[in-house]
Design a protein around this nucleic acid. Sequence first.
DNA 1: CTATTTATGTCAGCCATGTTGACATATTTT
DNA 2: AAAATATGTCAACATGGCTGACATAAATAG
Lengths: 158, 158
Amino acid sequence: MPQTDTETRLTEAIELLFFGYRDFISDPDAILSAYEFGRAHHRVVHFVGRNPGITVAELLDILRITKQSLARVLRQLIERGFVEQKTGEKDRRQRRLYLTREGADLLHRLVAPQRERVRKALSAAGAGSEDAWRTVMFALLNEENRAEVEHLITKDSK
Amino acid sequence: MPQTDTETRLTEAIELLFFGYRDFISDPDAILSAYEFGRAHHRVVHFVGRNPGITVAELLDILRITKQSLARVLRQLIERGFVEQKTGEKDRRQRRLYLTREGADLLHRLVAPQRERVRKALSAAGAGSEDAWRTVMFALLNEENRAEVEHLITKDSK
DNA sequence: CTATTTATGTCAGCCATGTTGACATATTTT
DNA sequence: AAAATATGTCAACATGGCTGACATAAATAG
């Protein structure tokens, strides 16, 4: 099947994304197995840590899974003392989620190697590369998700 | 929990990778469901298409799954006529894998929107960005995988 | 104030896709 | 002839998605 140069270049980029993401996930995976947690737990711990007091509904919106799926991992994280719930002050139907001290420790163990990997990759590519990389990654998003993601990721870099 | 500016920046990059990959996968997912295939089938079709005549062992090495996991999706792809096997000429133990005409059509349907997404993202970021983006993505790989991935993705861009 | 809507939880069961372990067959290599 | 290799297959199990149905408490609307 003949391909143009452009198609070949784009296919290579697609595969870079596949393999890059695969390895990007590999450090946390190894750490999680020691806790008998999986990726689903990682995602919850990550986004609760990044958004202390997040509600269940908001978390579901980020993760794009059903509440039944979330309930399973969330229950385990709560039972084992990594996440705690507090009834919302304004709206007492809400269960706001926070990491416990243990949860924050776990998150730190998970995020440290990821940060280190990204730090090395960005610096290996040279000073000017970070903005370009970020711009491309952001442009990969579905248009309807850009505003939300922009808001989520820049939460505390004001 | 106080974070340095650098940590915040790196955390944002981590999340960009998470959300970017999520959306990057969304087009194929939608197409696959019409065939009652999943991501596992996509990966097989992709890498068989990119590496015609690949052996089962080589494919397992790329996908990093067990042969039992592969067997399930591979059997379905063969039964439904998207992939075919040919006994290796030199080594008759090998089962070399190829896409059928139907398989190549499916692959094209899957890869077209991904290419388009990547093309738009790269061009939105401006002319010089592609090299920077690729360099960063490549540097995200585990060191021991770089040579193999380099070889895999540049297969036909000589 | 009552009725409805909302936020959350929970039970039950199904599906896709990963895993381990054991064993079988054909073929190649030693 | 024996051992190693490439592949296939059976069985059982785990994780983490899903749907559907129903329950409760709290907020909101009429």
